[in-house]
């Protein structure tokens, strides 16, 4: 569980490192040295700053970022749950721990139109696989989930990557 609003101090050099790495590390034996050379910095400085960004959660994690579609994981369902406020944190942690849940957040209800306050994205190879996973999630939450739905995406209307540090 993370606080959403905390922002650590970042300087211009940090931003340069973000720009230089947001599309990937150089695939060479000493990638941090290559970044340092490209930016005119010391390798130790680049490594210390990136380690700090990892510690601060600016970098969520570092490594392979798979393309779900290319791995055959083509169904994405947004599962939404109405959970009593006093249970929502535990419920969120339990759903978030499941391997097939990729994001899990508490969001505001908009009554009466929208009663759901817990969102969990579920990825799978096909819709029926996602539906089976959501059924398992419903069993885990038991009566804490008063109702739920799955919203499958039917069309991508726009997709531009978030660009950082520009």
């Amino acid at each position: 569980m993370n606080k959403v609003n905390w922002v650590p101090r970042m300087d211009e050099t940090d931003r340069q490192i973000i720009q230089a790495t947001q599309e990937g590390l150089p695939l060479v034996p000493q990638p941090y040295h290559a970044i340092a050379e490209a930016l005119g910095l010391q390798p130790a400085d680049v490594m210390a700053r990136m380690q700090r960004m990892l510690d601060d959660g600016v970098i969520r994690r570092m490594g392979a970022v798979p393309n779900h579609y290319r791995l055959g994981i083509k169904a994405n369902g947004m599962s939404v749950w109405d959970v009593a406020d006093e249970h929502v944190r535990d419920a969120g942690m339990e759903l978030g721990a499941l391997e097939y849940v990729t994001h899990c957040y508490r969001r505001p209800r908009h009554l009466p139109d929208w009663p759901y306050n817990l969102f969990a994205m579920v990825h799978g190879r096909r819709r029926d696989e996602v539906e089976a996973q959501v059924a398992e999630m419903a069993r885990i939450l038991g009566p804490r989930a008063r109702r739920h739905e799955i919203l499958f995406s039917t069309r991508i209307l726009k997709k531009t990557g978030l660009r950082l540090g520009a």
């Binding site: 993370n2 959403v4 944190r89 969120g92 942690m93 978030g96 899990c104 957040y105 969001r107």
Partner: peptide
């Protein structure tokens, strides 16, 4: 987002 439980 009001609270984040996991982003895997």
């Amino acid at each position: 987002k009001e609270e984040e439980y996991f982003i895997g």
